[in-house]
Lab assay of single mutants.
Amino acid sequence: EKTLKIVADSEEEAEALAKELAEKYNLEVTIERNPEEEGKYVITIKIKP
């Protein structure tokens, strides 16, 4: 299993990107607040072998 993390500037941007990735590529995608940067969100994508 591989994990890729993407940082987005807004929750709306994160949700839109996560939804597109999940639907288009059938990936497991989660969104959470970035504890290191206020106002940023981390999109985590898990790629199963």
Rank of each mutant, 00 (worst) to 15 (best):
L21T: 02
K48C: 10
I43Q: 00
R33E: 09
G39T: 08
E36F: 09
K2S: 15
V42L: 05
E13K: 07
T3M: 03
T44N: 04
N34P: 10
P49Q: 11
L4Q: 12
T3W: 14
A8Q: 03
P49R: 01
E12L: 06
I45M: 05
E12G: 08
K40E: 04
E28T: 13
N26P: 03
I47G: 04
K24L: 14
V7W: 14
E38I: 11
I43E: 00
K2W: 15
E23W: 07
L17P: 00
P49G: 12
E20P: 02
I31H: 01
Y41H: 02
E20F: 14
D9F: 04
L27K: 08
L21R: 00
L27T: 15
N26E: 05
A22H: 13
E32A: 06
V29Q: 00
R33N: 06
D9N: 11
E12H: 08
G39A: 03
I31N: 00
Y25M: 04
E37A: 09
Y41K: 01
E36W: 05
A18N: 01
T30D: 06
E11G: 05
E38S: 10
E15D: 07
E20D: 08
K24S: 07
Y25H: 08
V7K: 07
E32L: 03
L4H: 14
D9R: 04
V7D: 14
K19W: 07
A8C: 13
E12C: 06
E12F: 07
K48D: 12
A8K: 13
I43F: 02
K40T: 14
K2R: 05
D9K: 04
I43T: 00
L21Y: 13
E11Y: 13
E36R: 08
P49K: 02
I6T: 02
A18W: 06
D9Y: 09
K24D: 12
A16R: 12
E36A: 07
E38K: 11
E15A: 11
P35N: 07
E32M: 05
V42Q: 02
E36M: 11
E1G: 06
P49V: 13
K48T: 13
E15C: 11
I47T: 04
A8D: 00
E20Q: 13
L21Q: 01
K2A: 15
P49S: 12
Y41D: 00
K40I: 05
K46H: 13
A14Y: 01
A16S: 07
T44D: 01
K46G: 04
N34K: 06
E28L: 05
N26L: 05
T3G: 05
A8M: 14
A16I: 06
S10T: 11
I43G: 00
A16H: 07
V7A: 11
K40H: 06
V7M: 08
E23Q: 11
E13Y: 09
K19V: 07
V29P: 11
E23K: 12
K5I: 15
I45Y: 07
A18C: 10
E32T: 08
K2Y: 13
